[in-house]
Amino acid sequence: MSPNSLPWLLLLQLLLHLAEIAAKVPAIIIFGDSSVDTGNNNYIQTTARSNFKPYGRDFIGGQPTGRFCNGRLATDFISEAFGLPPAVPAYLDPKYGIKDFASGVCFASAGSGFDNTTSDVLSVLTPWKQLEFFKEFSGKLKAYQGEAQAQETLSEALYIISLGTNDFLENYYMVPCGRRSQYTVEEYQDFLIGIAEGFVREIYQLGARKVDLAGILPMGCLPLERATNPMIGACNEMYNKVASDFNGKLQFSIEKLNRELHGIRIVYSDIYQVFLDVVRTPSTYGFEDAESGCCATGIFEMGYFCNTRSVFTCQDANKYVFWDAFHPTERMNRIVADQVMNATLGIFK
C-alpha cells in the first residue's frame, strides 16, 4: 500500500463509521393498544387499567406501571436491543419529561383499535388522539433538541404500530348492532387496512421513515377465546383465520406504501407465527401452560378481575405463555421481541 492511499483509506473508514452511526435508531415511538401500552391508561378515565398488583410484580422494582403484564412488554425489550432504555415511558405519565421521551415514548392505550368505535367501547385513546399527543411531543422535542437534531431524531426513530386485535374481539364480534351489522368480516378487514394506511401516511408527513407494523396474533388461541369456544379448550380457528387473513392484507398494504412513499421503510412483524409456534409446542420453548393465564384462574380474568385477592394466581409466571386471559407474560414478550429483532427489525440496527 502506498503512503498516498492511506488518507483515502482512513477517509473511507470514517465514512463507513458515520454511515453506521446514522443507521442507528435514536428513539422508539409507539402507537397501539394493551400489547404496547406502558401506562397511559392510568391517566385517562377508563376501566381498562392494570396499575395494581399482581400486574408488574416482576417488573423493575416490582411495581405495577399500567402494563398488562407481570413485567416488561415486547417493546421494552426491543428498546433495550437497540441500546436504548430498557423500559419505554408512557407519554401521559407525569414522572417523565422530554429528556426521557427523547429516546423513547409510548402513546399507546389499552383497549384501542384502528377503528375509533373500538376505542369508544372502553373510553380509551383513539389512534388519532395518540397522534395528537405525538404532534405535541414533536414540538417539545424541537424545543429541547433544536430543530435540526429533532428532525433527525424523528426521521431516524423506529415507529412501532400494534393495533387490530381489539377491533375484532372487543368490537366486531362483541357489539352485534355495530360494525358487524354494517360489514362482512372481509369488508371490515379492508376498512381497518384503509385506516392503517391513512395512519402511516400521517406519521410519514410528520417525519417517520422507519416503521414497524405488527400483525395481530392468533387471537382464537387466547385463553379467553379458548374458554368461550363451544369446543372448550380448543383454539377458535375461525378467529385465527380472521387474524391470518387480516395479516395477509396488511402485508400487501405495506408493500404498496413502500412503493408510494419516497424514502420510507415499512416492515411487517409476524407476531402471528411466533405465537402459534409457542402455543402449539409450548414445551419446546420451556413453557408448561399455553392454555390459561397465570393470574387468577387464567381463563376469564384481566384488568380489575386479575388481582392479589385471587388464591389461584400462579407463583412462577415463567411457566406460562399468558399472564392473564388476554395478555402474554414477560417471558413470552421477550421471545416475541427476540424473534422480531432477528427476523425483521435487525435491518435498522
Rank of each mutant, 00 (worst) to 15 (best):
D212E: 11
G194W: 14
T117K: 14
L14R: 10
E260R: 12
L12H: 02
F287I: 05
M341H: 08
S5V: 14
F82T: 06
R180V: 06
Q145F: 15
V336E: 08
A90G: 02
R309L: 15
D76W: 13
N236D: 11
Y285V: 11
S253Q: 07
Q339E: 06
F114S: 05
S50R: 04
Q182L: 10
S181N: 05
L18I: 13
T329C: 07
V200I: 15
L9M: 13
Q13T: 00
I78D: 00
N116T: 11
A317S: 14
N333Y: 14
M332C: 12
Y43C: 00
K210V: 02
I347G: 10
A27N: 08
N4S: 10
F107I: 08
Y285L: 04
K140N: 09
W323P: 00
L18H: 11
F305L: 15
V25H: 04
I347L: 15
T184P: 15
L141G: 01
A81G: 04
L15C: 09
K349A: 11
C295V: 05
K249D: 03
M219P: 08
K140C: 05
L345Q: 10
L192T: 03
D324K: 09
S34L: 02
P328I: 12
F31S: 06
K99G: 11
E20L: 13
A148E: 08
H327G: 00
L224W: 06
